[in-house]
Each structure stands twice: as C-alpha cells, then as structure tokens.
Design a protein around this nucleic acid. Sequence first.
DNA 1: GGTAGACCTGGACGC
DNA 2: GCGTCCAGGTCTACC
Length: 294
Amino acid sequence: MPTLTLPAKPPFSFRSVVYSHGWMQLAPFVYDEPSATLSWIDRLPSGRVLEVRVREALGGIALETAGRLTKAELSELEARAAWMFGLQMDFSEFYARARREPKLANAEKSGRGRILRSPTLFEDVVKTILTTNTLWAATKRMTANLVTQFGEPLPSDPGRHAFPTPSRLAAATEAQLRAETRLGYRAPYILELAARTASGELDVESLRTSALPTPDLRKELMRIKGIGGYAAANLLMLLGRYDYLTVDSWARKMVSQEWYDGRPVEPPEVEAHFEQWGQWKGLAYWFWEWSNPS
DNA sequence: GGTAGACCTGGACGC
DNA sequence: GCGTCCAGGTCTACC
C-alpha cells in the first residue's frame, strides 16, 4: 500500500501526541525514536491483522502498512488513525486561555492538547484498569502479557500480536489471567468487561460519540467494574472531556511540591488549583509545566 | 455520602 | 535474605 497522508487541524505535533502520556510504551505500540515512527499491530473488524506505521508528515501524519487493503479496510484504517491522533480536534479556546498562563505558554507553540488513543476504546479501558494501584513497570508487563497471550498474531511475523479482542479475552479464565497474565485482582474486572462487550450488553465504542453531559458520561464509565474516579477521569480525557482531573499519587506529589512546600495534599487541594480552568482543567493540569517534575 | 479495610504484584528500601 | 511499604485506586461492607 502506498503511503497515505492524513491532514490534521493545526497546530499539530506528531511528537506531542506520541509523548502526551505513557500509552506509546504499552503493547502493541512500539515507538522507534531514531525514525520517529509509531507502529502497532492492528486487527481490523474484517479480521485482517496488519502492522501499521505512522510518522509525521507536512500538516499531519503519514501512514503506511504492507499488503493490499480493500476499500472498506482502508476507510477503517483512516478512521482509526484520525481517532487515535485526534487529527480534527480543535483546542483554540484552550490556547486562548493558556496564552495568559506562563506555565502553559508553550502549549500552543508545541501543539499540546491531543492525547494518544488506542484503536478502540475497549483497549483504552483495559489499559486504564491496568494502570490502577500499581507501578508503571507492572502496567507495561501486564499489557504485554495480555497482548502476547491473547492477541492475534501478525501472519508475516507470528511473534508480534494485536491487542486481544473482547471475545478472545472473554474466553479466557480468571485463573489464567491471574496466574499466567499476572493481572492479580484486576483479572475479574477485565474478564467481566470483555464478556459484557463481547455479548453486546456493553457498547463501549458508542461512548466515543456520546452526547451525554460529562458528569453522566463519567457515571456511565464508572459502571464498569474497575473504573473509579481516577480511571474515569483518564478515560474522559481520552474522550476529549477535560472537566475532571486524573488525581493520582503523582498529581498529589506535583501539587504538593508546586504550591505546598512538599506537604502531603489531598485530591480536593489538587482540584482547587485548577478549578478556574473549567472545561479545560484536565488539559491545564496535564500539560502544566511543573517546577520539579519527576 | 463518607470511611475503613482488603486486594495482586513486584520493586525499593531498611535492617 | 527478609519484612515492610506502596504504587498513575477500586470495591465492598458498614455506619
């Protein structure tokens, strides 16, 4: 397939999206720094498993993959890439406010705002659950185990796998997910999510285009077992809703150092510092230039 | 609605 | 080497 170029609404920075959070370190994503190329193994709804490679292009992204795709597959791939990189997202209102805040003065120039998403929201929900109450190294390990053990292999290189489908995960046992995938107590959460999604009882992908007010959407996300306040806020950010903060231990530490001289702070104190940003507070917090990041 | 205690795992740390 | 703490929290029971 020839390289496909997809335009993005300016300002756009491929690097800013890739480094927007840790997702690019999670399987099946692979980021090659020298060539500045993000690649992953994807499984399209048609059943085709392929490697997708994306790099920056003038005004957007350049996407390439091997083999001939049908028209429907090509269209699906374009839609996925547009969603993952938020190509048409508009942050002009956020930038207008950020220009008046020294700690966010570089946001527009650096094209900050877009946050890397996975091809499906199901994958993002699973990964988000795997970030809770654990170290980042363990999140990477659990995700890699899931992909290797349950993802469909790339035909031309069976050692590489796509993210597992809901039905494949639903067919796993809790014992397997605990003992072999090392998910611990998160195993029943992942299993229940996969089973509800595979059966059609839960349509997580529909939440991408939900018109629900953010508090209602948050409640909807929190009906998924394993998704609490932090995880819901993270998923809302991925959905382009920034009204809630992802207040975790790292956030508390940053706010403590920034405004409280290192004294331990609670979530309400973190919230208070970004309240004035209204619907943009999640982004203001996320891209804040902390004095002592660690 | 608010709070205490349990929960897998594994790296970091103190002894 | 061993015990304890805790991390990009959440759930359940109880009040």
